[in-house]
Each structure stands twice: as structure tokens, then as C-alpha cells.
Simulated scan of single mutants.
Amino acid sequence: MIVKAKQIPPVILKLQALSPRVPPHHNKHSFIKDDLARYLAGYKGEKSIEYYLSFLPDEEYYIFHDIRLFDGEHFFQMDTLILTKRLVCILEIKYLAGIIEFDRDFNQIIQIKNGQEKAYPDPITQLQRQKSQLNKWLKRNNLAQLPVQGFVVFSNPQTVIKSNDKSTKNIVIKSHTLHSKISDLQDQKKMDVLTQKEIKKIIRILMKYDTPLDHSIIEQYQLSRGDVLKGVICEVCNHLPLQRIHSYWYCSQCTYKSKDAHLAAVQDYQLLFGSVITSNQLKEFLEITCSSLATRILKSVSSSMEGENKGRVYTLSK
């Protein structure tokens, strides 16, 4: 049973809004594009395991995607958490391509792709830390101390995994083996640890204390508002900015016309700068001069407003 479904992480939405609005010559442009590609690959990998998890019986397995909890000292995020009456299992999912070699001596993995080597932190070490933190979280919230298990799952079917450490094969798996590996864990535990009532309690508390990461992407890359290109982007050719002609947005590059192209730009503003906005800020971001047009747009996309005249502040709808 899917308790918390997989959704596009806020960081991807923010990077998608930011990437076309940072000039190509800016010193952060390549970092932003590379990070967006990396996050998208991770999301693709995490989405791809949903098919294999769907073979687990709904009445026995409770699945949470992207759970982020606080253990009393640190936040920790798990790609996927699977809860049963007998155990809880953490999945740390990787979508790395090429050849992956585990180097346990230095707690790293080495990716060999297109003749190049690149090192990453050892996901087994990361998984062990998450298991420890989850145990700590369960204890902190006075919940039953379930056996905490876990796997590092490589979801790219073409990935070649190599390791000289025999223990690695018990932790590192390919996504197509998920169903059998989790079923085997469940069968190894002969007796239930939790009642159905206790399961419901843990589900309720997990969802209550789940704290998704939502930070400023502008601050993350140490940008200013002046670094961000303003205007409405053409949804056909990505030209920036569109011109406002009468009641349409017009693209001088591909001649595309739209009545509502500003909606995507307003969403970009919200992802980049937050939900609170004034009429002057909207005019500046959309590169328009008409106050009445700005007011009409804001009234159509806002959930509330406070203040009067020039001091009026709008809160954009989610």
C-alpha cells in the first residue's frame, strides 16, 4: 500500500525554473545545469522502482517515498521506507550508469563511464547511518523497536556492479530483485512485532513528522535577484522575453501567441522567490508597465491579499 506517493522533489521544480533564467555566461550556469541533470537522474531512478514494489501485497506492506525526519540532532531523508508488522526496510536508490566498483577501504564507490572515473560517497555507509537514525527516531517517539533492515538499490538495468567484499552482495541489489529480497526478509522474521493498531500509529506519526526540505534555491547558489533573467518565456522555443501586445503574449522569434503564458512565469517567481508578491514586483518580473494588468493577474493567481493601494501584498496560490 502506497502511503506516501513519489512526487517531483521541490528542488527539481526550483532548478527547472532557475536554469533558463540564469544567463549562459554566468559562473553558476553550468553548476545549475549539472545539478538539475543529477537530480532528474535520481528522480528517474526512484520512480523506476515503483513497478517492482507494486508486486508486494498491499495488505502487508506500507510504502513511503521521500520521508525526512528529525532524530533529535539531525534531519535524515530516506528515498523509500517500507513498513510491515515484522520489520522496517530502508531503500537507498542509485541510478548511476556504467561500472560501479565498491571500495570499502576508503568508503567510496567509483563510477567508470566513457573511460572516465568519478568517486562518490559509499551508499552502504549512508544506509547504515540512516538505519541508526531511524532507530533513534523510533525510540525518541516512544514507538516499538522494529528490526531495521535496508538495501542499496541500483535501478539502472545496465549498471555493472563490482566488489571484492562478500558482504556487499547482501546489501547491494538490482531493482528487479526487490520483490524477492524484501519478501525473503519478511519470511525470515517468523513472528509479527506489531499489531494493526500499532502499525496505524506509526503511519500516523511518520506522516505527522515528515518534514520535506524546502529551502531557497537563490540562496543555495548565492545568487541575487539581479542574476535572474526576467520576463515571460515562450513555451514553444524558450525565447525570453515575450512581448505583451494587446491581450496576447507574442514571441518575436517563432511568432507564437498566448493568452496565459504569464502563468508559468508567475509559477517561476513563486519557486524562486516565494509566495508573497506585490504589484510592482510582478510588473518588474513580467516586464510589463500596466498596473491594471498586474492587478488582474494577481487577483487571478492569489489565494489572499492584505493592505491597500501601493502597500497591498498578495499571496500566490500553491
Rank of each mutant, 00 (worst) to 15 (best):
F76A: 13
D260I: 15
M1I: 01
L83M: 06
G150L: 02
Q128H: 12
V276K: 15
Y62T: 03
Q116E: 14
K44F: 07
L91R: 08
I205R: 11
S216W: 00
K257S: 12
Y39S: 03
F75P: 01
I32A: 08
P147L: 14
C251M: 07
T159V: 13
L263H: 10
N238K: 15
D184G: 02
Y256S: 14
W137P: 02
F154K: 05
K94R: 05
E198N: 10
L298C: 08
G231N: 05
E117S: 14
N135C: 11
S163Q: 06
N280R: 10
Y61Q: 04
L40S: 08
D210Q: 06
K190L: 09
L91M: 08
T84R: 00
D187P: 00
I63H: 03
R21S: 11
Q149Y: 01
S54N: 15
K166H: 11
L53H: 07
R140M: 14
G72Y: 10
T159A: 15
I277R: 09
H176S: 15
N141E: 13
F151P: 01
V148T: 12
F31D: 00
H25L: 13
E287V: 12
F64R: 01
Y120E: 04
Y221P: 15
Q111H: 06
K257A: 08
C290F: 04
S302K: 03
K166T: 10
L146Y: 03
Q116K: 14
K4M: 07
A264C: 04
S247G: 01
L185E: 09
V232E: 07
T295D: 11
S224D: 12
I182L: 09
K230M: 11
Q130P: 00
Q253K: 15
Q253Y: 05
I124V: 14
I124T: 07
Q253I: 06
L13H: 07
S224W: 02
K283C: 12
I245Y: 14
I93Q: 06
T177F: 15
G42S: 07
I218A: 11
M191P: 00
K131W: 01
I161M: 10
N156I: 04
L271T: 01
R225V: 10
G72K: 06
M305L: 10
G307Q: 00
D187E: 10
I173G: 04
I182Y: 11
L134K: 06
L178P: 15
I63C: 02
L194A: 08
Q16A: 10
I218S: 07
L240V: 05
S292L: 13
T195A: 09
V172I: 09
V236E: 12
H65F: 04
S183W: 11
K169E: 12
R204I: 00
Y269L: 07
E92C: 06
